[in-house]
């Protein structure tokens, strides 16, 4: 069962990748010749032409795509025009920064969001629930760049508790640079992680509240209550388990979205992650990085969806892993 499922998903992933790579290539091609954006204005025309030929940018698009695919299959997604580094290595080197930022913000969101959502949903339409639900609307609608700047003004410029931005000191853990283990690193992480957590936090509160309220009306809860099961056990062992399924799906998606597009937070807090890398690369037409990045994001989402499906199947035996579901 699991084997067929994985095989089917892998095949599906390859088809998706092939289609997306063509779309990305067409899109990037439409931007125009990147060399004109990158060269210093005083570079003479013949040097520019030579460069274009050497990079193969004068060839027709299908030839360029062919060369790209051939190289990609041998693991070479091109060298960044501006960073002088293979684009995959570049993405990998910045990925940990984004990953720990997103991880921290999701931990905050789940640790606060689930209990708050449960409180808001369990009590019968009480003021706590209403307040939490209106506050969470604020969390969804406040633009993050504004919130980020506000947090910098309050916590960094006025209170001077936390640094204004950047990534703090890192230490290597199993070869991966992380700032989660140093005090300086954590102090740099707090503000951006809080800013980034607001949106998923609000969503989790709302989803949990809605789920709990919905399930409290259901027959199995009534029967359980009638059987005299303790409210705490009922809530955590039965209701929460059911409520979690849509939340896990959502967290999976949000996780991917935050990693791929945390660009606003990363820009405001000068966090050296991959979202910032993408925007900077688009600005200067760093074609190999743009393409590698978007393909990386596709792969990431495919993997996340796979993990979400597996977790949901574990949570609810009625959900079955199969190629067709």
């Amino acid at each position: 069962m699991m084997g067929t499922f994985l095989l089917y998903r892998t095949l599906q992933a390859f088809v998706t990748l092939a289609v997306v790579s063509i779309i990305i290539f067409l899109g990037v091609f439409a931007l125009g010749n990147p060399v004109y954006v990158l060269v210093d204005p005083s570079a003479p025309a013949d040097v520019v032409e030579q460069t274009i030929r050497r990079l193969g940018l004068d060839r027709p698009i299908y030839e360029q795509y062919g060369i790209f695919v051939t190289n990609a299959l041998s693991g070479d997604l091109g060298t960044s025009y501006t960073h002088a580094q293979p684009s995959l290595a570049l993405i990998a080197s910045r990925f940990t920064a984004t990953f720990e930022l997103v991880l921290a913000s999701l931990v905050i969101a789940v640790a606060l969001g689930l209990p708050l959502g449960l409180i808001a949903g369990y009590g019968k339409n009480n003021w706590v629930g209403r307040t939490l639900s209106s506050v969470s609307i604020l969390g969804i609608s406040v633009p993050i760049f504004w919130l980020g700047l506000l947090m910098i003004i309050v916590f960094s410029l006025e209170l001077k508790w936390l640094p204004t931005g950047g990534r703090g000191e890192t230490v290597a853990l199993f070869g991966v640079e992380t700032s989660l283990l140093t005090l300086d690193g954590l102090s740099h992480l707090v503000l951006p992680a809080m800013a980034l957590s607001l949106f998923p936090l609000a969503l989790i509160i709302r989803l949990t509240r809605a789920g709990v309220r919905e399930h409290s009306q259901m027959d199995y809860v009534r029967f359980a209550r009638a059987m005299g099961i303790r409210p705490a056990k009922l809530l955590f062992a039965y209701v929460l388990r059911n409520v979690l399924i849509p939340i896990v799906t959502m967290i999976g998606l949000i996780f991917g979205t935050l990693i791929a597009f945390a660009v606003v937070t990363e820009t405001v807090f000068a966090w050296p992650g991959i979202g910032k890398l993408l925007i900077d690369s688009i600005k200067v037409s760093d074609r190999p990085v743009i393409i590698a990045y978007l393909l990386f994001v596709v792969v990431m989402f495919l993997v996340i969806n796979l993990i979400v499906d597996v977790i949901n199947a574990a949570l609810d035996p009625r959900i079955r892993l199969s190629g067709t579901s």
Partner: peptide
């Protein structure tokens, strides 16, 4: 190799 904004441009 691979230099999109080559220093050759400075040596006109």
């Amino acid at each position: 190799e691979n230099a999109a904004a080559s220093y050759k441009g400075a040596l006109r």
